[in-house]
């Protein structure tokens, strides 16, 4: 067993995990933050995307012990003082979700992309969002929602 300290959305979590515990499972099971969703658990769907030191990663493709001392942000960290993050509000406004299962992954991916480059081109945005799967075929509305946050009119 390994003692691991995770800084999750600003809160410090001291957890004790097996080496084989994925970061995804540690976030959900050991830190109790179930907003991050487990999809395929082998790096294909992107549902488990979180920000690791500000950069999007797939939390199923990393062990919790590897994230010791690192800063993590998940969907629970987006809203502040009961006010939704502009991406969350835009997803609602643009009907960018149906069942919502992929939504936390898309939100964190989009947050990472636009924080890294607030002038992200449409081509780079679509390239970036192509990393995640949505089985309700909501891609067009997801792209529209993120474009709106970037200040762009619907295409």
């Amino acid at each position: 067993m390994h003692d691991v300290t995770l800084c999750l959305n600003g809160d410090v979590h001291r957890i004790r995990v097996e080496a084989r515990r994925t970061l995804l499972d540690a976030i959900r099971e050991d830190c109790g933050a179930t907003g991050t969703h487990a999809g395929c658990e082998h790096g294909v769907c992107g549902a488990c995307t979180v920000l690791l030191d500000g950069e999007p990663v797939r939390s199923c493709l990393m062990f919790a012990v590897q994230a010791d001392g690192r800063e993590l942000r998940t969907v629970e960290g987006l809203a502040k003082d009961g006010v939704l993050h502009k991406l969350q509000q835009s997803f609602i406004d643009h009907h960018a979700l149906q069942c919502g299962y992929c939504t936390p992954g898309f939100l964190m991916l989009a947050a990472g992309l636009i924080e890294a480059d607030p002038d992200l081109s449409d081509a780079a945005l679509i390239d970036g969002l192509s990393a995640n799967l949505c089985r309700c075929t909501g891609y067009a509305n997801i792209v529209a929602a993120v474009r709106a946050v970037l200040g762009r009119a619907p295409s």
Binding site: P56, V57, L61, L109
Partner: peptide, 9 residues
């Protein structure tokens, strides 16, 4: 090669 998330790691 993969996507942004996988290239980050």
């Amino acid at each position: 090669v993969g996507h942004r998330q996988t290239r980050n790691r």
